[in-house]
Simulated assay, not measured.
Amino acid sequence: MPQQVAVITGAGAGIGRATARTLARAGCDIALIGRNRDRLSDAAAELQALNVRTHIACADVSDAAALDTAAEEIENALGPITIWVNCAGAGVRGQLAEITPDEIRRATEVTYLGTVNGTRSALLRMRRRSYGTIVNLVALAGLRPPPLQSIENGARAAIRTFSESLRPELLHDGDRIHIALVHLPSINTPHFSWTRNHTGKRLKPMGPVYEPEIAAEAICRAAFGKYRDIWVGTSGVKSWVISTFLPGLSDRWLSKGGYAKQMEKVAVEGNEPDDLFGTVAGAYAAHGRFDMITRKGVPPLLTSRHAQVGTAIAAAGFALMLAVRCRRRG
């Protein structure tokens, strides 16, 4: 396509807002979808200096009809959609017994069904031209799912398997539409300030924390590099080893350390506002309040091509080891 038109859901703050800036710098015209019009307008104003066209569409991603309407508005305003990034999500933290059925349903609708609805809206338009890229976000591969996040972890796992099931459908129909998955560690966004919280303590990220611009860079590479998967950071390696070979030990550690590492010592005072059923007032940008503890270096971005090479090397090494053993026995 002569002009790239990128749609970002959840574009008013956090990873979505950082992704809008990154794709705009890459020369894309940007469509911003979210629930808070003021926040979307503020994000669009940041892009004016980059000389790209922008369009704002207020929509709740859990509403498939509203998302389809927004997609049609975007194509009428900017042209054919070529990139669609599903960044929208809503969370609820706490032990499952303390979370209400309505909260479970809403968090799943926004995070999982929001991604499904966004992917479907993108496909319906991209198939007119048999061209485009859809980027979905999942938790870092290899990480043992921590406690207190069962609803969000379930939604992100569902997004991964949904995306993987969709790929052969597109191959079967011969569409040149690419589905990319970006596997993310903890990212410093306002998400921790407006998640529905049943823990009684202020939330904080667990494990190595990176700035949203790192996630946005990975998303940009996934969009233009046609990668199947991109993994950000290396913290998943240790967790993968433990969860694979010592699962019982991992569960016992998470039952203790997994709680303390997600909560600050400061107690929550009263009912703090959250974005589960509505938007939070205030000017939120891409970053959260954890700039002081984020990793300042650029982490490695492991792509699916790197993983294929690593698997081939590991397989060759294993075959060589077996050959040496067989020769010794012979």
Rank of each mutant, 00 (worst) to 15 (best):
V5D: 12
V5N: 15
A6W: 00
A6R: 05
T9I: 07
G10F: 03
G10A: 12
G10R: 05
G12K: 04
A13T: 14
G14Q: 01
G14D: 03
I15V: 13
I15N: 02
G16F: 00
G16S: 02
R17A: 12
T19D: 05
R21E: 12
R25I: 11
A26W: 00
D29M: 02
A31S: 12
I33R: 06
G34C: 05
R37M: 12
D38T: 12
R39A: 15
L40M: 10
S41Q: 14
A44M: 02
A45F: 00
E46S: 06
E46L: 07
A49N: 13
T54F: 00
H55I: 01
I56L: 11
A59W: 01
A59C: 09
S62A: 15
D63C: 07
D63V: 04
A65H: 13
A65N: 14
T69A: 15
E72Q: 14
E72V: 07
E73F: 00
I74R: 04
I74L: 01
A77E: 10
A77I: 00
P80S: 14
I81C: 06
I81S: 07
I83C: 11
V85N: 11
V85H: 05
V85L: 07
V85P: 09
V85M: 08
C87Q: 01
V92N: 10
V92D: 06
G94W: 00
Q95T: 12
Q95V: 12
L96W: 06
A97H: 14
T100V: 10
T100Q: 13
P101Q: 11
E103D: 12
R105C: 14
R105Y: 11
R105Q: 15
T111H: 06
T111D: 12
T111C: 08
